[in-house]
Design a protein around this nucleic acid. Sequence first.
DNA 1: GATGAATGAGCGTTCATTCAT
DNA 2: AATGAATGAACGCTCATTCAT
Lengths: 200, 200, 200, 200
Amino acid sequence: MAKKNLEREERRKIQIVQAAYEVIATKGYNNFTIEDIANQAGLSKGGVLHYFKTKEDILIHLLEQIYMIIEKTIRKRAEKYQSPERKIKAIIIGYVTIAKKQPAFYRVMADFWAQITINERIRDINTKIFEKMSNEFKKVIDMGKEQALFGKVDSSGIAYAITAMLINTAMQWTFNSAIYNIDHVGRQCIRMVMSYLTRP
Amino acid sequence: MAKKNLEREERRKIQIVQAAYEVIATKGYNNFTIEDIANQAGLSKGGVLHYFKTKEDILIHLLEQIYMIIEKTIRKRAEKYQSPERKIKAIIIGYVTIAKKQPAFYRVMADFWAQITINERIRDINTKIFEKMSNEFKKVIDMGKEQALFGKVDSSGIAYAITAMLINTAMQWTFNSAIYNIDHVGRQCIRMVMSYLTRP
Amino acid sequence: MAKKNLEREERRKIQIVQAAYEVIATKGYNNFTIEDIANQAGLSKGGVLHYFKTKEDILIHLLEQIYMIIEKTIRKRAEKYQSPERKIKAIIIGYVTIAKKQPAFYRVMADFWAQITINERIRDINTKIFEKMSNEFKKVIDMGKEQALFGKVDSSGIAYAITAMLINTAMQWTFNSAIYNIDHVGRQCIRMVMSYLTRP
Amino acid sequence: MAKKNLEREERRKIQIVQAAYEVIATKGYNNFTIEDIANQAGLSKGGVLHYFKTKEDILIHLLEQIYMIIEKTIRKRAEKYQSPERKIKAIIIGYVTIAKKQPAFYRVMADFWAQITINERIRDINTKIFEKMSNEFKKVIDMGKEQALFGKVDSSGIAYAITAMLINTAMQWTFNSAIYNIDHVGRQCIRMVMSYLTRP
DNA sequence: GATGAATGAGCGTTCATTCAT
DNA sequence: AATGAATGAACGCTCATTCAT
């Protein structure tokens, strides 16, 4: 049946993308082969390429998945709280927690950035998701402004800056966790952001 | 070219590293060859490898050079001003200005980050320089604290966070300059940082 | 060619090793490439490396095959006769006959010896097979001693010496067949060996 | 002065050939470069090639030197004794002694044999010297025949066989000295040869 | 005489992709 | 659907040789 096959295909694709994530997390973006993915997924090289036409296809799917997971994690954490202040804190802690629980996310993200110069598809995905991520902050900041809890900041611009800060703070820590205590630096971020948003 | 000529050798090395920079800026880290560098430098493949034993050697030199230029630019800008507040502003604007004048710096930096998972040498250089860069902020913040202009913040932790914010804000903008107005976001950064440092 | 086909794989490997033999016999060990082997085998470079991971792997297989063929030839010749004396003669004539029929065997063997200084695997194979070859003499000499046809010689030591003599006599002749009449020198060898073994 | 220069040139050439010997003895024939020789000789690459036009030239000279040293050693040892029997023994022990004192001689000799297939110059030198070496035996055997100490053997043929035996016995031992006790096998050779030469 | 910078051809190896089965 | 044999282009690196100084 067509439906059943589509389901099967979808399952296979998820399986392959997951295998790709595991392989890249271990070997880095530039040192893995399709055969590595096939082995990890318990398939053959031909089997992998049956579901994804090229290596790039697999990677594009992987990139989207990673960004989506981060974004979803962030959003769910924010939804748990009511006050804008608590939401902001929850999101910031979310970025830090991902770094601690899934450092490979940030490492793979860095791997993809290296492709941006020469790969338009990856650049577009990166832009789209970076906007989605910073939009989570923007929404909360706008909410705080409406409730007169936050000052009249440019929510869009500052949301970009905060997102950039958190991603790179987390990323640098995954590169070398000895460089600083990420919980500590995370708390500094919260303080700085809140001090700015709540100033008279 | 007979007799060992250290000056000439140094010139050649600079020429090759510069060529590597130009090539990577154009083609990205993962799509260039030694031959590309040789062509760009007006040398033969063998000629390039006469000065650098391996491809990695060239890249290590390039990475160090890029980071050094950024750090030097930042430091010089800070030195122009006396007050800690003006110094902070100058450094932040420095990161933004580099993005505008030499966007390839940040793109190549991202390319190198993708190597960190699998290359210890690159990881170590990245850590060393990230610390140097954030140290520029730390020094100024400590000065502000001494002069009782800034509050009792943890200068080290917040310096890391600010550095991460600026590098990634700049980097994302070089990936896609349509995403935001970098001058605008830069000013937001200044405001947020100053609001935190000068709060009572 | 889908499903793993062990038979086909074995056939391919033999085909490649055979091609390597032909190429080395023509061009010598130090002047041939994997591409030469591929061309000779009617495959592409990648095809050859699909069956043998490295060039060295091919050569190791070839070396083992050559030694095995020589040893097998020698042993079969010896088995045709009953008396130790006839067996000794048959083995010696065997070495000579191989030189005449397959001079490339000895030339390729010499090529491998040149690798011994720097390649432990080749050294070990050489030692193992040299012992196997001389053991053929030893067995017959021991038999002759048991039957009181031969004197009380040290069968092991003299077997090594005889083997060395025959291999090098054959090898030198393959280097330059004008140097001597190998049948003639072979007969001298038989006489000398028999004179020693049968002396009172 | 011309004379002085010729002397200087000769000295340089000896120095380079000696360096080549040391390098090959260490790294094997197929893994050394002209630069290795230059370093060993305390010269530059260009300096080496100033005295020998090509790499092959150096090797040819080295090969001749090695063979000449072996031959000279053998001859001198034979000259110490009067009786043919003692002379034969002295020569055989000579081959063994070289293996023990200068195993690299035999290893380098094997390296050269690997070139014979494709290099006529090396083949010719090998033939010439192999004949010289076996001629030392032939002379002594003829002397023994004249003095009616040895039987009516074919001195030429048996000299080839004995030489082949000794070179290869020595060579195999330098490949792997654990394979046998070379003094012991050497004595077996002496016994076998003498038994043949002195039989009625 | 001597240096070493520069060349460029060549090789082993990797790997994405194709395709017969 | 799935396999893996086979291809072939590409790359990093080596090294003999040339030659300006």
